[in-house]
Design a protein around this nucleic acid. Structure first.
Lengths: 199, 199, 199, 199
DNA sequence: GATGAATGAGATTTCATTCAT
DNA sequence: TATGAATGAAATCTCATTCAT
């Protein structure tokens, strides 16, 4: 039963880790950087986490489980299929708006890291794709979505568009700002649902 | 004027690097691993490349410039806009089919590596997005594509779908095989151009 | 004037330390291991002992002073010289029978540790050799023992045989059991006093 | 096929390790101490040895295998049983005379280290006891030695006396010098074979 | 060109000890 | 007395890079 102050310290370290991982990347971050950023002693990081890897693992899992919950909720809602996708996109975009550093870390260090963290968390990552797939399958059943596309492929495409959007923001290739964040969800949904072709 | 045998050695080392980078990831790969895989002496790697980073840089640049050329060629062709996108997607998919290790390395180690190689090569990466954007802009001008979407955003979405497709293959989430490679380009184009919505 | 409960706690910690030192060796034992084994809080070890070294120091001194007393008593007794040596050997063997972990710690961590605890406690160690030497010298004076051997050398030899016996038990090279413990003292004395040669 | 210079470097490091292990003890020796003493760069130690432990392992095994060979040779010789024991004692004593640091390291860090190196090398250690046992058994068969003592116990006793002698030298409790080294073997044999009792 | 030994800066991790409560 | 969080000084080991041959 960890005390409140202990939980606070963990949070302090996790938050600091997000900032330095985001700034320097996981591999260029030394544990001492995390400790310095958190303004705690070196060893305290190891008091709370067994390893540097575990810090990232926890950051990822914490946030990703929220994402899974959000997709499940969208799926269970009374929304139209297209709106469900909008809710999912909106959640991810809001996550970025709220804590861009954390989302940057997740996208840069985990979801494509096929030889390290991505492999470790593959089940969790795929769980999101499966949940989105479910929304699409239901949309196809209801006639909202075309049956012509494989729903799992469509799920990955949808996620790919969102991740590329965030990547654009991270790299500074796409503009950020209130207006952008507001409209981004709709643009993603329009892109994926309406497609490029005219008419 | 490097001799033929020298060029062969360079190639030998680059090809070996692709294999080990793909297998272990860039950070887990030691220079000695590259040398061992290439069956050359340790120091020879440094005879041909100034650093381990440069090996990856060269692998990326070599392949990415082919991609840029391919997109330019597609753009200059007489194809319909939608077919031009199909040509681009097809080129990337063929690249993966031909040398999955190399494409894995590029996607895993470069295009999202916002704090290292992705940042270094951002201009080259963005150049691809700009070329694709051009195709889309022209498609909008000709009436083939809807003017409702921002062409640069559409370009990134298009690329995001392809990269996610390859990521699915890399992680083993999507099936690979002749049939899949054959149809993949069309599926990407259909996804991006027709969208999910029925009719 | 430490309270009874305080003395109990000290004992609890010392006894736990014996078990973990014996099991893992002094260097592989963390202070937290001692605390865990003793079922007390981490910091309490430092409440009772100034350092981890001091715990071992105290374990050694406590037991070794009993040994010194035992040898002195044997010397002061009315026994024959050979029987005095038997009493000394018997005491050490009984010590092992009674608390093999403690004797293991003493032999493994102290009496040969020429660069650490053995050096620190050299006076106490040598005091034992001197007392045994005294018994032998008296035996030589009384004609029981041959004057041909240097009594200090003989003392060390006698102790060396006993320590090797215990080492054999510790390593599992020599069998342990009631019968072995019962006969061991006589066998040591026979070895040292009668020698190997026949007749 | 390591080159001559490579073998020389290994030797240089091993010899330096003997000196620092002997001076400070294994646990108080940092790898940098070995490197400094050998006058080589830090990393070179790891170029030749996978770990600090392996350095000690090699030192022990190298010397101990010589001891095993020496005991085997003594056993195979035409000497009387008592003289065979003298040859064994003499070899160990000469080993100490020739390289006291190495023998100190072996006795202090290995042969009693029941939780670390002693356990690891138990088979090699016991092999020595078994070979000595064989000499004693043969002595009993020939009538030279009394059948009253268990030969394995006698073997350990014999070794215990020698190791205690060396321990005495190491601790400075027993005088060293040419005369002592010369006579030591005979004294050990006299002690073990003739015993303490007069006639 | 080719070799692989040599270098040493740093990274992670451990853990004895201190200290605030 | 008792607790366990906090500290930070090492220690081991890695490995990119250099260099002598």
């Amino acid at each position: 039963m960890p005390s409140d102050v202990a939980l606070e310290r963990r949070r302090q370290i996790l938050d600091a880790a997000v900032r330095v991982f985001s700034r320097q990347g996981f591999h260029s971050t030394r544990v001492s950087d995390i400790a310095d950023e958190a303004d705690v002693a070196y060893g305290l990081v190891y008091h709370y986490f067994p390893s540097k890897d575990q810090v990232l693992d926890e950051l990822f899992t914490e946030r990703w489980s929220l994402l899974l919950t959000a997709i499940e909720e969208a799926d269970r809602s009374e929304l139209e299929p297209r709106e469900k996708l909008g809710a999912v996109a909106g959640f991810i975009i809001e996550s970025y708006r709220y804590d861009p550093d954390l989302m940057k870390v997740i996208i840069v260090e985990v979801t494509r890291a096929a030889n390290s963290f991505g492999r470790t968390h593959l089940d969790q990552i795929d769980a999101a794709f499966r949940l989105i797939e479910k929304i699409i399958t239901e949309g196809q059943a209801s006639g909202a979505f075309t049956p012509a596309v494989d729903p799992y492929f469509a799920s990955m495409s949808f996620y790919g568009v969102i991740e590329q959007l965030l990547t654009g923001w991270i790299f500074g290739l796409l503009p950020t700002g209130e207006a952008e964040f507001e409209s981004a969800g709709d643009r993603v949904v329009a892109m994926v649902c309406d497609g490029l072709d005219s008419d």
